[in-house]
């Protein structure tokens, strides 16, 4: 039986590879992605997550956007490692999909979503 997982991520090159690996693995059912600031801004992370899912034709997986800043520390992004978009030199098209209306933290708390169950 495949394991049901959510990925909370700031894609990010290796994050993108992790999402692709999850999608390519029959042992895993990826039920959604929540995004967070880190390698890039949370807005960029959300765009990247949606683009990766569209690339892999996995648009049914929901994406919910989370927190834009750390709790206490100042924002620290890693453009020198992951490039300006967070995905190195990769050029993915703008995603057509949209994130969930709900905040990432609410999505995590309430999954599976009543409106998707």
């Amino acid at each position: 039986m495949s394991k049901r997982i959510l990925i909370d991520t700031d894609p990010g090159i290796d994050d993108a590879l992790a999402i692709l690996l999850a999608l390519a693995s029959p042992e895993v059912t990826m039920e959604g992605i929540t995004t967070i600031h880190g390698n890039c801004s949370v807005d960029q992370a959300t765009i990247n997550a949606l683009s990766i899912l569209e690339l892999a034709e996995a648009k049914e997986a929901p994406v919910a956007m989370g927190f834009p800043l750390p709790l206490v520390q100042p924002s620290l992004l890693a453009a020198e490692t992951h490039g300006d978009t967070g995905l190195g030199y990769a050029k993915l098209p703008e995603p057509r999909g949209r994130p969930e209306v709900r905040h990432g933290s609410d999505f995590l708390v309430s999954t599976p979503a009543p409106d998707r169950a």
């Binding site: 927190f67 834009p68 800043l69 709790l71 905040h103 933290s105």
Partner: peptide
């Protein structure tokens, strides 16, 4: 208050 500030920019 801190959570509201972080959750809704």
């Amino acid at each position: 208050i801190a959570m509201a500030i972080r959750k809704a920019p």
